[in-house]
């Protein structure tokens, strides 16, 4: 498992019904591409986050397939609709099988 992997997300705390909100996510991860070599000329094995998903109350907002061309510390920004109060769930899937999650509640007032 990659060291020190910390997911972080930015979601507004509240919204009006049906509002379109912007979500930003950043996860600390080296995204080792598998293209690089170490000092002895050996290929450093690929180790990346290969999938990221965001759902709201169980329904998909976005589902991203990542390749090694995504930069270190993957960043995503996208928009979601908020019809009602609920919970955003965020999931990152690592090549090594590790899964990192975060969630944010939002209140429709």
């Amino acid at each position: 498992m990659a060291d020190n992997v910390t997911p972080r997300v930015r979601v507004p705390r509240d919204a009006t019904a049906g509002e379109e909100i912007t979500i930003k996510t950043l996860i600390s991860h080296p995204m080792e591409s598998g293209q690089r070599k170490d000092g002895d000329g050996n290929v450093i094995p690929r180790s990346i986050i290969n999938r990221f998903t965001c759902t709201f109350n169980g329904e998909t907002v976005i589902d991203v397939t990542l390749e090694p061309a995504i930069s270190t510390n993957p960043y995503f920004e996208f928009q979601a609709i908020v019809p009602e109060s609920g919970t955003f769930e965020f999931t990152w899937y690592d090549d090594d099988g590790a899964v990192y999650t975060d969630s944010k509640d939002i209140t429709v007032g």
Partner: peptide
């Protein structure tokens, strides 16, 4: 790039727009 694929964004019913931003190599 040696491997041209970068990312695929699949949008679900809760996406407010079919848009996304990221950082690439």
């Amino acid at each position: 790039n040696p491997t041209p694929s970068v990312a695929t964004f699949n949008f679900g019913p809760m996406a407010a727009s079919q848009s996304a931003a990221t950082r690439i190599r």
